[in-house]
Design a protein around this nucleic acid. Sequence first.
RNA 1: CGGAGAGUAGUUCAGAUGGCUAGAACGUACGCUUUGGGAGCGUAAGGUCGCAGGUUCGAGUCCUGUCUCUCCGACCA
Length: 409
Amino acid sequence: MKLSQLAFKVAKDAPANADTINHKLLVQAGYVRQLMAGVYTYTPLGLKVLRNIENIVRKEMDAIGGQEILMPALHPKANWLTTGGWDNIDVLFKLKSRTDRDYALGQSHEEIVTPLAKELINSYKDLPLALYQIQWKYRDELRSKSGILRGREFFMKDMYSFHENQADFEKFYEKVKAAYLKIFKEMGLTAKVTEASGGSFTEKISYEFMVLTDAGEDDIFYCDSCDYCVNQEIAKVKEGDACPICGAPLKAARAAEVGNVFDLGQKFAKDFELTFANKNGEKQYPIMGCYGIGISRTMGVIVEKYHDDRGIIWPKAVSPFAAHVVALNGAEEYAIKIYETLKENGVSALLDDRAQSAGNKFAAADLLGIPVRLVISPRNEKLIEWKKRDQEEIELIDLNTVLTKLKTS
RNA sequence: CGGAGAGUAGUUCAGAUGGCUAGAACGUACGCUUUGGGAGCGUAAGGUCGCAGGUUCGAGUCCUGUCUCUCCGACCA
């Protein structure tokens, strides 16, 4: 992609109506545009990041046996009446058609996936089953905030699993937890598996995947010596108390929830009369689980974790491009050649071919945050300046070395 | 929903006590110059001052209402 042709470019100033880091940087660098509080457009650059995150999630969900579907965001009232959600969930967006029929916008999809699964599940032989989707979710929040961290409309991966018995569910539950940790690690995030409230329909605890950041809205207590971590909402401990697992003093921190896993029990199966015949031919309700990852929120959390005073520093796995080629004046032709060669070798690259001063281009590169910056300058003959976004050192290397480093680092 | 702040050019902002024919910088267009950390000079385009009422000879400025954004809190099955 050539920067001169890119829709939505870097701006000199951060937006005035933004306080949160991810909001400021994502808008200034041209990754998103705000439509209203909690609702954003993703630009070509922002969409690339979102897709990268989405694809990492998709790969791991597929790897544990999840099958991707795409359910509607617009739901009939009846499904939400069946579970009691219509009257009890205050964040549920409700709307009316001109023929006075009631609809809801999906804030989660148990109400849709459970009746859908009735067609798929008749026998224990049909279990286990795991369906997931990656889609917009809608929640009528009283207050959206913090850029893309808390939207009224947000992008989410939600998976629903169906099991013959509790033991089979537990087995899958652990598989999902492991997959989640792998996913977040690949994106450069350290997620803590945190005990939290299971919501109103279950006494059981759920697990939230928390990333430490002051931009988050949850308070957690965690242990440095073991993996124990608990959300303050259900915590029976305070900072400095002995960890119930290993005895080390607990720490308190602010964190953002990027994922969660729930044991749904048989609540939704019973609500929708979803049953299967077990090995004895008896009718039985399956155990269900649900598993979410906030795709758009994760993008915001990554910016909160990876930035400096000059801009974003994308982890390689989610960066919109692998390399940012800066063509300085007098080296335009050679820069285009480098850019084309990178593309031919399967390296995604952004070429800054704008008629701008060197300083302007460097500032844009820092703001955009692509992990590797390649400066092409008449000063260096045919050599290329290699600089990583998170380091200050600059190396002068030839094109072949650039290709090798991009493919191996 | 309670509290606080803010809406003026594409963007960031300035416009005490009402006198405005509404400014600056950046950005944009054109010309010249320049070329390694957001370059310089010149010219130009760009605004019903969030919206609706009101007070006044006169409102960006005062009053009332309303919409929106941001922050704190509450809320977030």
